[in-house]
């Protein structure tokens, strides 16, 4: 039963509403990304814009970073249906444009971040 309870918490905080989750650490621990993506509001097949913030390991905004978006569905062996782009809004704030999910199921999203000597990749996994 404990596992189920934890699963329920995980669903609420981490999966159905990424906006409510704490910043996610990159694989190298150099970058933290806070993604404002409410999974419950995502409409399959519709374009969405997803704001996010980046901070470095000391918690300061990571500005003027180069960010690319990739992802897909591992179970289906395909990537994202579109080629999203990231716009820099300044002060460590960014927005993903041109993002679309073409079907329900398990999706992965990766932000690859480059800023000076900082190179990191932040992964998100969620179910639609």
């Amino acid at each position: 039963m404990k596992i189920l309870a934890i699963a329920a918490i995980g669903l609420t905080l981490g999966l159905s509403d990424l906006a409510a989750a704490e910043p996610v650490a990159g694989q190298a621990g150099q970058v933290f990304a806070d993604l404002a993506l409410d999974i419950a509001q995502v409409e399959v097949g519709a374009f969405i814009e997803v704001p996010f913030t980046l901070t470095d390991a000391s918690g300061l905004p990571l500005t003027a970073a180069s960010v690319t978006v990739s992802g897909g569905m591992a179970m289906h062996g395909h990537g994202l249906p579109t080629s999203p782009v990231v716009e820099d809004l300044g002060e460590g704030r960014y927005v993903i444009k041109g993002l679309k999910f073409s079907m329900g199921g398990d999706w992965q999203l990766r932000l690859t971040v480059t800023s000076g000597t900082v190179i990191d990749a932040v992964d998100f996994t969620f179910a639609l």
Partner: peptide, 18 residues
């Protein structure tokens, strides 16, 4: 929350859904 846990839970929840 820890994301590795979230990843595991995503798989778990999706499995339940299927």
């Amino acid at each position: 929350m820890m994301w590795p846990l979230a990843v595991a839970l995503a798989v778990l929840c999706a499995g339940v859904h299927r």
